[in-house]
Design a protein around this nucleic acid. Structure first.
Length: 720
DNA sequence: AGTTCTCTCA
């Protein structure tokens, strides 16, 4: 028996714009793709589907107007700047540029901060804008009583109690917020001191400063200020943010002592606090109680429970809550929809994301930035490229801020599906954005992966250098990509050099990294195998010894079996299939078909490959979808032997026999697998033919199969 | 003046 992986990899790849099931594995570690390298057809097919001249017009050509107008700083000043003021400001800088430090009368607000968002929201409210400006000034003051006093008197003339609440509510710097609270307590007339404490606690929550909250609480009690329900729900939610569920319970239980009784907001905060700290049972228990006892439940509570379910991986639970909510007559708002969209995105159910988004539109709920961000995340994760890119364009059109994470997800998706050009364009766009949107290590990593996957060695190397210049150390992800890249280009010495770099950086190779080395091994010329095997040995001793057994023609099958089983006990589940695919391909490359069968057998026993063969009264089938070419051919060989045995035992074949290679709608390889598989079937004189009406299937009849199996047996017995 | 929407295979 001999079969070889003789054909060169096909260079076409099917687009998987709407892959189903979603979330195919990362191409670097894809369980099936590695000997069938396929590069980027996405762009062309996408262009074809969309009669637009350039796929990403706003990326490739300079836009007529700013794409992200929100990145333009919003100038907020206390008074309308008088000409004199402007002159003063300008005169501070010799080069005619805006002074770096804000002049006394104008405050520059980070346009990406939540404060800026609130400011835009309240843009018609000049009073709000004035106090937001004061809050910004207070945040950046020195943390001293004097500096805080100076900031307040510079920007606010005789603030009222209401002004104080507004200012504190806008602040972010917790130390200064406490000092500002102190100033207001000492300098203005206050009727409801508890409110000032409550808003200050909110500032502490922003920085997760639990100790500060406890200190304020103590101080309140000492001053005889009586906490109210708002105090409790704020403190409970703070405990939740700080991952201190026991503190949340402690304050919840303190309520009666202060003549407060929990209301629906308190319960919502408690459910949230439990949920955030991983107490799923308790969170859901509280929700159940709330329903049974017919407490008032509002959309916020439902959104919280949906999130608790979604983060615990129970996505149907999340949907159920949504149904329950509608059944109870509570109208879903934008936050509910956003939470649901996020949940279905996490679940990897982009089709449900679409349905929910449509429903939202039908009900007239206006999507906001969080909605679009959730859509983008879902589509990127599911590699619904067309949809993701469309959402991205819509966000830009609507002036909604992207951020580094969203950009990175978009780039990773492009990399995963082979859209190098798009990834590069997005990267270039990021470079032109303000600092907080500049490419970070993830961005570099994503584009390096994109280059690596499509064999652009020089580009990948260039970007790696750029990344180093930008001050980022290469991490395991980048080095995995680079090694993949060199392996594919058969630059074995560079593979070794990069591997040494990894060890030099004291990075411990993980299972995926070793899988990448294995994959490189399947692409390495015989005379250089030793170099790669040496790396594998250093990365993972067990894997190294298994590989050496496979290379050694004298090694016993039993030894291979034992070593492989030991190895597979110790690697993570997500890489097992990829390892099997590579190891079997390696055996096939080495002409060690028996060892390939040993490994295939083990993979079946460990249920790494499942349901390779199936039998119905009308059809027997072989399913090789998701297998590498070598593994698929090994499985075919085993199947043929099984069929012959069945005939020998006097069994009758069914009317139809079929081989399923996959329909090529997703993953990198299936289309490739089908075409390469077909040529191997021809070499074997196997009478299977591509089914015209069933994509990804090769079929034959009982009669043709019978005579083929007979002639095959005959020739084998002759040669024996 | 209170509870929810936030992130990447790290």
């Amino acid at each position: 028996m001999a079969f070889h992986l003789s054909s060169t990899p096909p260079s076409s790849q099917s687009p998987h714009l709407h892959s189903f099931p979603p979330n195919p594995p990362h191409p670097l570690f894809s369980s099936s793709a590695q000997i069938l390298h396929l590069s980027s057809p996405f762009l062309s097919s996408w262009k074809h589907k969309n009669p637009i001249k350039t796929p990403l017009p706003s990326l490739s050509s300079p836009p007529p107007k700013p794409l992200l107008p929100l990145h333009t700083p919003t100038k907020v000043s206390l008074q309308d700047p008088s000409p004199q003021t402007s002159l003063d400001s300008d005169s501070q800088s010799l080069d005619g540029q805006k002074p770096k430090t804000p002049s006394k009368n104008s405050i520059w607000i980070n346009p990406n901060s939540p404060r800026a968002a609130r400011l835009r929201h309240h843009s018609s409210d000049s009073r709000y804008a004035r106090f937001a400006a004061l809050a910004a000034s207070l945040d950046s003051s020195d943390p001293t009583d004097a500096a805080v006093a100076a900031a307040i008197s510079a920007l606010a003339d005789r603030p009222t109690e209401q002004d104080a609440v507004t200012v504190l509510n806008c602040m972010e710097n917790s130390a200064n917020a406490v000092l500002a609270l102190r100033w207001f307590q000492n300098n203005i007339k206050i009727n409801k001191e508890v409110i000032l404490y409550n808003v200050t606690v909110k500032v502490l929550r922003k920085s997760k400063n639990w100790d500060g909250v406890e200190a304020l609480w103590k101080e309140m009690l000492e001053r005889g200020v009586k906490p109210d329900n708002v105090t409790f729900s704020t403190i409970i939610s703070c405990a939740g943010f700080c991952n201190l569920p026991e503190k949340a319970v402690e304050w919840f239980e303190k309520m009666p002592e202060f003549a407060c009784s929990p209301d629906y907001v308190t319960y919502s905060a408690m459910i949230d606090a439990y949920g955030r700290s991983g107490n799923i049972e308790k969170a859901l228990g509280l929700y159940d109680r709330a329903r049974q006892e017919k407490w008032r439940l509002d959309p916020v509570t439902f959104a919280t429970v949906i999130r608790v379910y979604s983060h615990s991986g129970n996505f149907d639970g999340a949907l159920n809550v949504y149904e329950e909510m509608k059944a109870l007559g509570v109208k879903p708002n934008v936050v509910i929809y956003n939470t649901l969209l996020d949940a279905m995105g996490r679940a990897g159910r982009p089709w449900q994301v679409k349905t929910i988004f449509k429903e939202m539109d039908k009900k007239g709920v206006v999507p906001n930035r969080a909605t679009y961000a959730a859509l983008l995340r879902s589509y990127c994760k599911a590699r619904y490229a067309e949809d993701a890119l469309s959402v991205y364009r819509q966000m830009k059109e609507k002036g909604m801020e992207m951020n580094v994470i969203l950009y990175n997800m978009l780039m990773s998706m492009c990399a995963d599906i082979g859209c190098v050009d798009e990834a590069a364009e997005i990267f270039a766009e990021m470079k032109g954005l303000p600092d907080d949107c500049k490419p970070d290590s993830w961005s570099y990593s994503a584009l390096i992966t994109a280059y690596s996957c499509s064999g652009k060695v020089l580009e990948a190397e260039g970007l790696l250098n750029e990344m180093l210049e930008a001050g980022y150390q290469p991490n395991i992800f980048v080095l995995t990509s680079i090694i993949q890249c060199y392996g594919k280009a058969r630059q074995t010495d560079d593979v070794v050099r990069s591997f040494d770099k990894l060890l030099e950086l004291r990075i411990t190779p993980d299972d995926r990294f070793c899988g990448c080395l294995l994959n490189v091994l399947t692409q390495t010329q015989t005379e250089e195998l030793g170099k790669v095997i040496n790396c594998i040995e250093r990365a993972n001793v067990k894997l190294g010894s298994l590989v050496k057994l496979l290379v050694d023609e004298g090694s016993a099958n039993e030894a291979v079996k034992q070593e492989a089983e030991e190895l597979f006990e110790n690697i993570s589940n997500e890489v097992k299939k990829a390892y099997c695919n590579c190891l079997i391909d390696f055996c096939v490359n080495l002409n060690q078909s028996e060892k390939a069968c040993v490994l295939l057998d083990m993979a079946l026993r460990l249920e790494i490959y499942t349901d390779l063969q199936s039998k119905s009264p009308t059809q027997w089938s072989l399913h090789v979808r998701g297998l590498s070419l070598g593994a698929a051919l090994t499985a075919l060989h085993v199947w043929m032997n099984d069929l012959s045995k069945a005939l020998e035992n006097g069994e009758e074949l069914p009317p139809l026999l079929g081989i399923h290679t996959g329909h090529g709608k997703h993953k990198y390889s299936e289309k490739g697998l089908a075409s390469v598989f077909e040529s191997h079937l021809r070499e074997l004189n196997a009478p299977f033919h591509e089914a015209p009406d069933k994509v990804g299937w090769f079929l034959t009849t009982k009669i043709a199969a019978n005579s083929w199996l007979e002639s095959r047996n005959l020739s084998e017995s002759v040669s024996a």
